[in-house]
Design a protein around this nucleic acid. Structure first.
Lengths: 234, 234
DNA sequence: GAGTGGTCTAGACCACAAC
DNA sequence: TTGTGGTCTAGACCACTCC
C-alpha cells in the first residue's frame, strides 16, 4: 500500500467516522505529519488527492476544511463506472439481454481504435438500482483485451471482473453526453414513452497503458438517474 | 508565474503547435528536466497537471504520451464556466432579461449558505454561441461578495468580471444534473416546445476560501449543447 | 537488465490569511 | 507578525515495461 494513499484513506475515514460537518477545520500539516509519521510531501500528496475527490478543500494561509456535500440520490458522474470507492454501496443489478461476439461497426472501430477483423463483445443490459430501472446500456469490449465474458459476469460488474480478476488497470476515460428524445424501442426498455427525455452518455475507457477497451452508450432514465460532479481549479 | 505552471503551459503549447497526434511519445522526464531546467519534482507536477486536464497520459515504465481527443462541437463540462483556458474561444454572447436585487428563497439560502436579509443578485439570461441559443440561465450571486453587477457585465462574462476585475479567486464547484421535460415557459425561451427534453444543471461556485458566491440553474437546449468530461483514476 | 515513470524524504523558502 | 498552506530542490529508491 502506497503511503500517500494510506494516509488519504485514513484521513477520509476519520472525517466520515466522526461525521465531521462541512467546513470543519482539520489539523494543520505539521499536526498531520506527527499523526501519521510521514514526510510533509506525502501529507500534501494525500491532501491533494482528497481535494480532487471533493472530500476536503485547502485554503492557503488558513487551513484544511471538510467539503463533503453529496445530495442524496445523486450518482457521482465521474466514478459511476469503476473508479475509486463508492461509500454507499447499494443493491445494483443488471438484466442482461445479449452477450455476443460481433464485428465492429465503423463507430465502434473508431472509438476502440481497433482492426477490421477484430472480435468485439457486444452486451446490452438494463441497469437497476434499488429495483428501479435507471439505464439501458449498450457496451462494446475488445475480446483480445477482456478475454472472456459471459452473462453471469455481465449481471454483476464487468468492471470489477476486469479490475479484480483480469488485473487490468483502468487508466482514464472520455465521456460525451447530451439530452435526447427517446425513440420508441429504447423508451420501452426504460418503461417510458417515445419522445420522453433522457440523458445519453457515450463513454470510452482506457487501460492505464492508454489502450481503449470499452465503448458504451448509456441511456439514462430521466427521473431515476441524477448526477453530480465536483471539481476544482487546481 | 509558478514554475510548474509555466512548464505545463510550455509543454502543452509544444504539443498544440506541433500538432502532435494522439499517442505520440514525449521526451522522458530526464529530457524534460534538461529542456526546462527545473527539478524532477517540478516536471512531475507539471505532467500531473496536464494529465488531469486530459492533455497527456503517463504510463509507468513506458513513457509520456499525447492524449488530446476533443470531439468537435462538444463543450468541456468542467470548464464551461470559468476554470482554465478555453482554446477555441468562439463568439459567445448573452441576452440579459433581469439584473435584480432580491431576497433569497429558501433554496437559494441553502445553496449559498446565506442569511435571511442578505441581498442577492438575480440574473436571468439567454446564452448564445455562434448565434445559436444553447441555454437559459438563472443565476444568484451574493451581493456582499460580488459588490456590483449590471446588464453590461452580464452581457459579457460575469466570471471574468469576478476573476479579473474583482480579483476573486474561484476555488471549486459542485454541479448537479439530470435530463428533464421542458415546461412551456422555458421552452419558449429556447425556441422549443413544452415536453421537449433538456439538460438541467444546478451549479454552486465557491471562492478559493470556500465561500459560495454563485448558485445557478441552467437549462441547456438538447440539440445545441453537448458536453464532454475527461477523467482519470489517479 | 536497461529504461522509464512513481514514491518518498528532509529541508529551504514563498505566498497568503488572520490577528 | 505569526501561522498556515504551496512551491521547489536534490537525491534515494521503488515499480513497472520492454527487449
Amino acid at each position: 500500500m502506497l503511503k500517500y494513499r494510506d494516509v488519504a484513506k485514513k484521513i477520509q475515514q476519520a472525517i466520515y467516522q466522526q461525521n465531521l460537518p462541512k467546513d470543519t477545520q482539520l489539523p494543520n500539516i505539521e499536526g498531520l505529519i506527527n499523526q501519521y509519521q510521514v514526510s510533509r510531501t506525502t501529507i500534501i500528496k494525500a491532501l491533494n488527492c482528497l481535494e480532487r475527490h471533493g472530500v476536503i478543500y485547502q485554503v492557503q494561509g488558513s487551513g484544511i476544511f471538510v467539503r463533503q456535500l453529496q445530495k442524496r440520490g445523486y450518482l457521482n458522474f465521474l466514478e459511476s463506472h469503476g473508479f475509486s470507492v463508492d461509500l454507499n454501496n447499494s443493491p445494483n443489478s443488471s438484466q442482461v439481454f445479449n452477450v455476443d461476439i460481433v464485428q465492429p461497426s465503423s463507430q465502434v472501430k473508431q472509438n476502440l481504435q481497433c482492426e477490421d477483423g477484430e472480435e468485439i463483445y457486444f452486451i446490452k443490459r438494463l441497469r437497476k438500482f434499488e429495483d428501479k430501472i435507471y439505464a439501458l446500456e449498450r457496451s462494446y469490449y475488445r475480446r483480445k483485451m477482456v478475454g472472456y465474458l459471459n452473462k453471469e459476469i455481465a449481471e454483476h460488474s464487468i468492471f470489477s471482473y476486469i479490475k479484480d480478476i483480469l488485473k487490468i488497470n483502468i487508466g482514464f476515460s472520455d465521456k460525451y453526453f447530451k439530452a435526447i428524445k427517446l425513440d420508441e424501442q429504447t423508451a420501452n426498455y426504460l418503461g417510458l414513452s417515445a419522445g420522453d427525455p433522457a440523458l445519453c452518455v457515450e463513454e470510452i475507457f482506457y487501460t492505464s497503458a492508454g489502450e481503449p477497451f470499452d465503448f458504451s452508450t448509456i441511456i439514462y432514465h430521466y427521473d431515476n438517474a441524477k448526477f453530480y460532479v465536483q471539481s476544482n481549479s487546481k
